[in-house]
Each structure stands twice: as structure tokens, then as C-alpha cells.
């Protein structure tokens, strides 16, 4: 298993996202939210979740359609995305040029005891993204592919999807705010100047 997934998310996620300060980021529950909360010190340009499983990509799509001049990044996990994989089709028909999706695929439900997800058993979310009419997709499995994946997330014109295959090393430990009302207000204040 580890031969197929040499990347560790603690290194690979920050490396592929780069400087997050100019992005608006929506994070799916569990590992993806911890990755990005740690990277941004729970910044006001991110909205993280610890529930509402399956909602991150649709939330990012709504944000991207509302803020066409800003780059919106959805960071989600394979389990979160599988719960509402049809949203990729909605992204594919709306084609917001400012939306990028990073799926941190460790092949497991890390939050509930590392049970295997479908991606560990042959399901390929990049192929599903391609079939969902998302024009720019990439799979990143090794260190030397990170730079190319980062370019897809940053520079593609049209929605893009990057599948970042990582091993089962845990996400960074971070004590992040779980107060969604306060985090919503902080996000809006940072973006609009008022909550």
C-alpha cells in the first residue's frame, strides 16, 4: 500500500497549495479541514467543517459563482467527496473558471478508524471528474508531480480537479474553532468588510 502512496499529507498538502493567503478555501470535514486550518492558522479566508459531509464542493461552487474575481479552492477528502460525487457533474456544467478542487485521497475514512474507502478498492476520482466534464484534471502521487499539480490548481482557466494520493499518516494536530457562526462572520468580514 505504502509503495503506491509515498506522499505524506503533512508535507504534500502545504506543498501543493502553496501560499494560501490569496485564496478563498472551503474545507470538507475531518482531515482536509485540519490540513488547511493548520496551514493558515485557522485563517479568516477559510471555512472548515466538522459535519455536513458531502457539502464542501457545492459550498465552494456557490462561493466561486458569487466571487468570480477570486480564486476559490475546495479541499476535501476522498470519503467526503464520494458522499456527493454528483456535485462534480454540477461543477462540470457550470464551469466556473475560478474554482479548483483538491481531493486529498488517502483511501480511508481517517476520522472513524481508517476503514477503506472505495478509492482504495479501485475507484478513480480523477476519472469521475473527467467524466463529469471538468476540463482540467491531474493525479499527483509522487513528489516530482507536486509542482505540476500546483500549477493546475493555480493557473488553469476553468474548473480544475487534482487528486492528491497520500498515505495514511494523520493530518496535523490543530485546535481549530468549531463555531461555524463565528467562522462564517469572520470569513465575511475579511471578504466584504462586514459580517
Amino acid at each position: 500500500m505504502s509503495e503506491n502512496r509515498p506522499l505524506n499529507r503533512k508535507h504534500a498538502v502545504p506543498a501543493i497549495v502553496g501560499d494560501p493567503s490569496d485564496l478563498l478555501i472551503i474545507c470538507g470535514l475531518a482531515g482536509a479541514s485540519k490540513d488547511i486550518a493548520h496551514l493558515t492558522k485557522d485563517g479568516d479566508n477559510i471555512f472548515t467543517m466538522a459535519g455536513a459531509m458531502g457539502g464542501a464542493t457545492a459550498m465552494g461552487l456557490g462561493l466561486a459563482l458569487s466571487q468570480p474575481a477570486k480564486r476559490v479552492l475546495v479541499v476535501t477528502g476522498d470519503g467526503e467527496l464520494l458522499m456527493n460525487v454528483g456535485t462534480l457533474a454540477t461543477v462540470g456544467i457550470m464551469k466556473p473558471s475560478n474554482l479548483s478542487i483538491l481531493c486529498v485521497d488517502n483511501g480511508h475514512y481517517g476520522e472513524t478508524g481508517y476503514q477503506e474507502t472505495h478509492t482504495q478498492r479501485g475507484v478513480d476520482l480523477e476519472v469521475i471528474a473527467q467524466g463529469s466534464a471538468i476540463p482540467m484534471t491531474r493525479t499527483v502521487s509522487t513528489e516530482n508531480q507536486i509542482e505540476g499539480g500546483a500549477a493546475v490548481l493555480r493557473n488553469s482557466n476553468g474548473p480544475s480537479f487534482v487528486l492528491l494520493r497520500v498515505n495514511t499518516q494523520p493530518p496535523p494536530a490543530i485546535k481549530r474553532s468549531m463555531d461555524a457562526t463565528e467562522r462564517k462572520a469572520a470569513f465575511r468580514k475579511a471578504l466584504h468588510g462586514k459580517a
Binding site: L24, I26, F47, A52, G54, G55, A56, A58, M59, G60, L61, G62, L63, A64, L65, S66, Q67, N84, G86, T87, A89, T90, K184, F187, R188, L191, H192
Partner: peptide, 17 residues
């Protein structure tokens, strides 16, 4: 594709104004 997408999408719209 399913209504629950719309719930999350509307929340994202509010973040975006």
C-alpha cells in the same frame, strides 16, 4: 444532481455575498 447540493451551495453564496 441532488437537493442537498443546493443547501451547501446557498451557504457558499452567502459567504460570497
Amino acid at each position: 444532481t441532488t437537493e442537498e447540493e443546493g443547501v451547501a451551495m446557498c451557504a457558499g453564496c452567502h459567504l460570497g455575498g
